[in-house]
């Protein structure tokens, strides 16, 4: 039996426990809301994070290419990057998947037979952490970009009116000397 097959059987339980790791980073009242409100528009944070984690877990178990993790990671990290948490906390949930998987394997008492496959899977999870950190930084840089762009949008007409900016004309046909 392959490791991915074994984990696929345990997938729903791993996903819920993994989701719970993220929920634990929120206050108790909030955790309750994020967990129980199923409407994706009434609870966009809970829904987006859960859906993203499900995609990541499925991707890991089916051996998807790394690029396929970009969107679900981005969806989750984009939210976490503007919440009351440190950068480490924003990406830490991915590392916790390693612990959850090892716990499942210990329960099945077949850790030794999967050690090589497990090592590869854990390497991939480590790569996802690095990807997440890049996304986190992009989001934070975007916040500064937004501030700068908004100032431009608010004042561009004013600068134009004051003749402080001008746009370069289309170059005319080249003239021969």
């Amino acid at each position: 039996m392959k490791l991915s097959n074994l984990l696929s059987e345990k997938r729903p339980a791993i996903l819920e426990r993994w989701f719970d790791v993220v929920l634990e980073t929120y206050p108790a009242d909030t955790k309750n809301f994020l967990q129980k409100q199923n409407n994706q528009f009434a609870n966009p944070v809970g829904h987006t994070i859960h859906q993203g984690m499900e995609s990541i877990l499925n991707g890991l178990l089916s051996g998807s290419d790394l690029q396929e993790f970009s969107t679900p990671l981005d969806n989750i990290i984009r939210i976490r990057a503007v919440q009351d948490i440190a950068a480490s906390q924003a990406v830490a949930f991915i590392l916790s998947l390693k612990k959850l998987i090892r716990e499942e394997l210990e329960k099945s008492q077949r850790m030794d037979s999967f050690i090589k496959e497990l090592s590869l899977l854990e390497d991939k999870i480590d790569t996802l952490v690095l990807m997440s950190f890049d996304i986190y930084m992009q989001c934070r840089e975007k916040i500064y970009d937004l501030k700068a762009n908004e100032t431009k949008r608010l004042t561009y007409r004013l600068l134009q009116r004051a003749n402080l900016v001008c746009e370069v004309e289309e170059p005319g046909p080249q003239q021969n000397d």
Binding site: Y26, P27, D29, T30, L34, A42, N43, P44, V45, V82, Q83, D84
Partner: peptide
């Protein structure tokens, strides 16, 4: 509240 998860925003 929905966006922040901060209970004091309830």
């Amino acid at each position: 509240f929905i966006g922040s998860g901060d209970p004091k925003n309830m």
